[in-house]
């Protein structure tokens, strides 16, 4: 498979400080990089315009879930064979992309999901409060979506074309992570978890989700499920 048929979707919102640093290794890897600028108000758009990437720009901020769905629709329309979700804040290590792609390239599964907990060394690097919260989220996902994973809120994932065509993200904001898992279970897509490392830089920690926001995500997901 040609690497240009592998599309990396990078949703971004006000990430001017790190966006070029994040994108460069992906471009060097020969992938087709799709940056979805979700209505940034800083220099993000000016910075990505200088790079050889596909740029899609939301005229107003809709949220990460909406940006990922936009990127997926665009990538599918451009003939993507595999789609990877990749965070713009520098948390994801591009060296792990190959690990995520392998089970899909070998046609073993439709979806490969990154997990911070499969490698004990990586798991120990997660701040304690974050680790506890993620464990709770895992328990919640098992109860609500009937899908058993070690890391349910990891934004580093890869989809085969078949899976990407079946998944439609309706949750515009952060509840999309739970929604994707719910759809994987509901549409009976085959999946596997792959150990990946998340880099907790100071920048990424400052931009990360707070505990109070996690409660909002939970409410959004439940309301979305039962009142849609």
């Amino acid at each position: 498979m040609k690497s240009e048929n592998i599309f990396i979707i990078v949703p971004t919102y006000n990430e001017a400080a790190v966006i070029q640093e994040t994108l460069q290794p992906l471009i060097d890897g020969g992938y087709s990089v799709v940056v979805v600028d979700d209505g940034s108000t800083d220099e993000t758009y000016a910075k990505i315009k200088q790079m050889p990437v596909h740029i899609i720009r939301h005229i107003i901020n809709l949220g990460q879930g909406a940006a990922l769905q936009t990127g997926m629709e665009y990538a599918l329309s451009r003939g993507a064979d595999i789609i990877v979700h990749f965070d713009a804040d520098g948390q994801h290590d591009h060296h792990n992309i190959g690990h995520l792609l392998r089970p899909i390239l070998e046609k073993r599964v439709d979806v490969a999901l990154g997990s911070r907990f499969l490698n004990k060394e990586h798991a120990r690097q997660i701040p304690l409060a974050k680790r506890s919260l993620l464990r709770l989220a895992t328990l919640f996902t098992i109860l609500v979506s009937n899908i058993s994973l070690t890391d349910t809120h990891n934004g580093f994932r890869a989809f085969s074309r078949n899976a990407a065509e079946k998944i439609k993200i309706n949750e515009n904001r952060m509840a999309h992570a739970s929604e994707i898992l719910h759809q994987i279970a509901k549409k009976k897509l085959s999946y596997t978890e792959v150990p990946i490392q998340v880099l907790y830089t100071e920048y990424a920690k400052n931009k990360g989700q707070s505990i109070s926001n996690s409660i909002n995500i939970l409410i959004d997901f439940l309301l979305g499920r039962f009142l849609r």
Binding site: H54, I56, I59, I60, Y74, S77, N172
Partner: peptide, 18 residues
């Protein structure tokens, strides 16, 4: 309404990029 707005913004964004 939010869903309609999202679709609209998405269509404009993809079309413009294309």
């Amino acid at each position: 309404q939010q869903s309609i707005l999202t679709e609209l913004i998405r269509k404009i964004a993809i079309e413009f990029s294309r």
